[in-house]
């Protein structure tokens, strides 16, 4: 598969990157390219201009600040896995990064790209050359139908990034750079929840840094991913859980799920039964059941909604058990 022709830029500053997008209509940022390239090769997307942001200086390192860790958007998932600092402070970010794709992809895939990866749908991701070309354009291709839910009124393509749920559970913020300068917003704000237009960012806006607040004392977390094969695959469901535990009481709980909707989903009900309660097997069960009740997954990546929902229950439970074990072992 060969890429069609396109124009290519390598800006060295955030500002020129933003300006290049503003100047060129059908343009896209290119980071590691591991999400973008397959779609581009298949003709699913057709940018006329690619703006490689990897030469931009100052957004490719991991720095410790007083209250938070600053991770540049260009830091690769491989670098996260190898970072002694992240391993020490946020082992669950490492767990999540490590669970993405394959080692080769992680070595080029960036954190920014992971957070901003497009939503997925088997009806959308195929080549435009044959087969798909006669299907009526679905919402995500700019049309008015959905092939997944035949009379559906909107696109339900699924956000499947592995790292976002952990960062969301940690209340991470992202520094967004656009035409009017920089702003620091909560990571959750970048996800629109729409399958066909998954991000709230403007086309010219890009994420420069991710700020992860340092964990409160006695908080423990994990990322648990369920996938079909032991490698390569996106999650069937992925769960990040962070709990602050005092003695046997849960002070705070953050649970985020991926691959169950067009954006990462916070399991609010599951969190609320945990908050203030004493740890017990029953409690975990109850929390998992709440998540099960809340989540309405979309069967668009090869698994039925029924099955994904069941797995939500199973893996929320497993995630919570793992957090409790971490707590007992003193691992944050």
């Amino acid at each position: 598969m060969r890429l069609p022709h396109f124009e290519y830029f390598e800006p060295e500053t955030l500002k020129s990157a933003v300006n290049l997008i503003l100047k060129n209509k059908e343009s896209k940022f290119l980071a590691g390219g591991t999400d973008l390239m397959p779609k581009f090769k298949k003709g699913v997307i057709r940018p006329e201009v690619l703006i490689n942001i990897k030469e931009i200086t100052g957004i490719n390192s991991i720095k410790e600040e007083k209250n938070y860790l600053k991770i540049g958007a260009l830091v690769t998932l491989g670098e996260i896995e190898d970072s002694p600092l992240i391993n020490q402070v946020f082992p669950s970010i490492v767990e999540a990064a490590h669970s993405v794709a394959t080692q080769q992809l992680r070595n080029t895939a960036t954190l920014g790209g992971n957070l901003c990866q497009d939503t997925r749908c088997l009806y959308f991701d195929n080549s435009y050359l044959f087969g798909q070309s006669i299907w009526e354009k679905c919402f995500k291709r700019g049309g008015n139908v959905c092939h997944l839910v035949k009379k559906g009124k909107k696109c339900l393509a699924v956000y499947s990034g592995d790292v976002a749920p952990v960062l969301l559970a940690l209340n991470a913020k992202v520094q967004v750079v656009g035409s009017s300068g920089k702003r620091l917003i909560s990571l959750s704000e970048i996800y629109s929840g729409k399958g066909d237009n998954a991000f709230t960012l403007l086309p010219e806006e890009l994420i420069a840094e991710i700020h992860v607040p340092k964990p409160k004392p006695s908080s423990y977390g994990t990322y648990v991913k369920f996938r079909e094969r032991g490698s390569i695959d996106f999650p069937i469901v992925g769960i990040a859980a962070y709990l602050t535990i005092n003695k046997d009481t849960i002070k705070d709980a953050n649970i985020w799920l991926t691959s169950v909707g067009s954006a990462p989903v916070e399991a609010v009900e599951a969190e609320s039964v945990l908050k203030g309660a004493n740890i017990s097997t029953d409690l975990i069960e109850k929390s998992a059941n709440q998540a099960y009740q809340q989540i309405a997954p979309v069967p668009n990546h090869g698994y039925s909604a029924w099955y994904i929902k069941e797995m939500v229950k199973v893996f929320v439970k497993r995630a919570l058990i793992k957090v409790m074990e971490n707590a007992r072992g003193g691992q944050s």
């Binding site: 397959p38 088997l122 094969r229 390569i232 996106f234 090869g302």
Partner: peptide
Amino acid sequence: LSEKLFFEEGRYLNPSFLDYKFPTSME
């Protein structure tokens, strides 16, 4: 256990090594 092509209206929906699950070393 895992290899399966989704087939709809004459088209395969998962004609790729990402979505057609042939075993990796882990399986």
